[in-house]
């Protein structure tokens, strides 16, 4: 089983290697433009690149309709799902490491500093938390949709669900504003105060733990959905 898991991870890298070899350096170079102006923009840009890297294998598999191929090998479907989650985790960790390294290196060179915002030049704890939230959270929410309905139909349903939640949030915001309150601001202030009280290290650790728990729940849901899907 362990051998098959490693083989599936190696497969992931093998099928997307051209994208990694070309895409990753371009991504890192392009990100410098953002880093020059705004740390928030830099983190958002790298988060989208990371999500793409994490899902690249899924997209390639869907393109060549590989689901029945892997389901006909002597491996359990749960292992296929586990390998995909593991790959996503590795992609997030790798990219976090790279962007921390890149921002530090550029600061050390003293040539690039964010000007348009009051954020620091290097990636701090709150930016790392933001990066993790912007990558792991949507992936954890999306993957069960993918394993239940396939990539295309799953993405469509996930988008509809996301729009639905956004509309509900906007509605709640409007109601709150009419009542003289601003719930989004209140939530933001609350989270900031929690982070300040806990300190940066504990905040990052807590976020990582919460996201890991969410990832586990998401993975269990995906196991269940994929095991029952007709391929």
């Amino acid at each position: 089983m362990q051998r098959s898991l490693w083989a599936l991870l190696a497969k992931e890298l093998r099928v997307i290697r051209i994208g990694v070899v070309i895409g990753l350096p371009i991504n890192l170079l392009q990100a410098i433009t953002f880093l020059k102006w705004d740390m928030l923009g830099y983190v958002s840009y790298m988060a989208s690149g990371t999500s793409l890297l994490a899902l690249a294998g899924t997209i390639v598999d869907d393109r060549f309709r590989m689901d029945p191929f892997f389901a006909s090998l002597p491996i359990r479907r749960e292992l296929v799902v586990a390998a995909r989650y593991l790959w996503c985790g590795l992609a997030i960790a790798l990219m976090l490491g790279l962007i921390i390294g890149e921002s530090r290196a550029l600061e050390a060179l003293g040539i690039l500093r964010p000007r348009a915002s009051a954020l620091p030049a290097t990636l701090g704890a709150s930016e790392a938390v933001l990066f993790l939230l912007a990558t792991a959270l949507p992936l954890s929410l999306f993957l069960p949709f993918h394993y239940r309905w396939g990539l295309g139909a799953g993405a469509a349903r996930f988008s509809m669900a996301a729009v639905g939640v956004a509309l509900l949030g906007a509605g709640a915001g409007l109601v709150g504003r009419a009542a003289g309150r601003r719930p989004a601001v209140a939530i933001g202030l609350f989270l900031q105060s929690v982070m300040a009280a806990l300190g940066p290290a504990v905040s990052v650790l807590l976020t990582v733990l919460l996201l890991a728990a969410l990832g586990c729940v998401s993975c269990l849901l995906s196991f269940r959905f994929y095991a029952r899907r007709d391929l």
Binding site: R14, V15, I18, V60, M66, P68, F69, S72
Partner: peptide, 12 residues
């Protein structure tokens, strides 16, 4: 197992 239309990664 041989599938009716064998699926492979075309770029490999």
């Amino acid at each position: 197992f041989v599938h009716e239309t064998p699926a492979f990664y075309n770029h490999l």
